[in-house]
Amino acid sequence: MNVTISQQDAVTVVAISGSVDSLSADKLTESFVGELNAGRVKLVADFAAVSYTSSAGLRSVLAAVKESRRSGGDLRIAAVQPDVLRVLSLSGFTSIIKMYDGVAAAVSSYGQA
């Protein structure tokens, strides 16, 4: 799994590629924690290149969602592929996380009421 971080105005885009699983979740968590500790709490996770997520990956995402919201921000997810969406849906994540078709829509959502 690879993580690339970029900034779009006040929003931090965390682009993830590969499998978000037990072997890679710590790396993803570190990436999220690094941004949150730096005060960048408006996050967009770009899932366009995420091929798989497991329970360990879900726990990493959930921890970031909770921490960002606690700090007044949010973690929103963009461009989820169908196989990953099924896992997110089965595990109830689609009911608590805002999801968007693409990164642009997710980033601009922070500017909306």
């Binding site: 037990s22 497991s54 329970s55 360990a56 879900l58 959930l62 089965l90 109830g92």
Partner: peptide, 16 residues
Amino acid sequence: FSFHSVAHHSEVIAII
């Protein structure tokens, strides 16, 4: 399933 996914200390691999 969501509860078990976040509660389990190791790994649950969903085959759907």
